[in-house]
Simulated assay, not measured.
Amino acid sequence: MKERKMRRILQLHSTHKTNLCLKLYSFFILFTSLSNHGYFVKANIFIFSGCSQEKYTPNSPFEANLNSFLASVVSSSSQALYNSIAIGNGSSTPPEATIYGLYQCRGDLKTTDCSKCIESAVNQIGLVCPYSYGASLQLEGCCVRYEHIDFLGKLDTSVRYNKCSKSVSDDVEFFRRRDDVLADLQAAIGFKVSSSGFVEGFAQCLGDLSSADCASCLGDAVGKLKNLCGSAAAADVFLGQCSARYWASGYYDFTDSSNEDQMGKTVAIIVGALAGLAVFIVLLSFCRKAMG
């Protein structure tokens, strides 16, 4: 009688473990499905990236300083929307190990959202620019950049990325309001949002620029918006140290595709796959222990 009772208890215990493993497996399938469909990365949409041709050696002093820089970026982003960081620029560090870098979140983000965006950028930058001495990654709400040489505070108005929506037909009212918004954005210091009727926009300079350099950069950005995108109903331009955007109501989501969009989707899939693999390994280990 005792033996039958013991067998019954063991059977129930085994069934409980099996059901638990099946539930965990179902969660894993749901997790990977959501990851592949981008639900975990929609808040941090990929815009563009840039990587240096020069590569560093794994396990080198530069890699150690880069890891310190990225950790500092993540830590600092929970406290402030911008920070610049220099690591290894002292006399005791080899010149080839020096890193200058910064991060910045869009001016309308809360620090909690900024931190999440920066974490996403840091996780992606090594995938997009492996072993690079210099790299930049721009997401919808934030950016991270590091270089081997000191670029901080030095004006750079080269075009890094631009995107234009479909053109608007002869609409005098639209162009008048668009020009009002762009004129207002050109006078921004730091981050600014502007609107005129059904046209809206915002502009932002990186935090390492002086007020005069910011105004110069935004003047170039506004000029390039008009020159590169003409009569587009919505347009983006990112220069080396500032960005500007405008859109008419209903045109915020651009319809044109680009190689950068495909790169962003690829990075999202890679990140989701790696996260899914980690969950699967933990699940497999647990189930092996549970099943004895």
Rank of each mutant, 00 (worst) to 15 (best):
L66K: 11
S60C: 01
K192E: 12
S195I: 13
T15E: 13
E200K: 14
V181T: 05
G107A: 05
S52W: 01
T98P: 13
T111R: 15
I118F: 10
M6N: 13
Y146W: 05
C217F: 07
G107Y: 02
G107N: 06
R145F: 02
D108K: 06
G250A: 06
I270F: 09
K154F: 14
F27C: 00
D236L: 09
K265R: 13
S33K: 12
S14K: 10
L185N: 07
G107L: 03
A248W: 09
Y146R: 02
S132W: 02
L81Q: 07
V168Q: 14
D253G: 04
Y133A: 00
G292L: 03
P94H: 01
S243A: 03
K2I: 13
A121H: 03
L66S: 05
D220N: 15
S132A: 12
R245A: 00
G272F: 09
Q11L: 15
N65P: 07
S60P: 06
S165G: 11
K192D: 09
N44F: 05
V193T: 13
G230E: 12
T18E: 07
T255N: 14
A203W: 02
G141N: 13
L137E: 03
W247H: 06
Q204T: 02
Y56D: 00
N123G: 09
I85Q: 01
V271S: 09
R160G: 03
Q204A: 01
Y246M: 02
S35W: 10
L34M: 11
A183T: 15
I149C: 00
S26H: 06
M291F: 10
R7W: 12
K163P: 09
Q104D: 02
R7D: 10
T98V: 10
L228G: 03
V159A: 00
P94E: 08
K2W: 11
N83D: 14
S115F: 02
S120M: 04
V237W: 14
C114E: 12
I47N: 09
V159E: 06
Y161G: 04
A273M: 13
S285P: 01
E173Q: 14
I118C: 06
Q11A: 10
T112I: 13
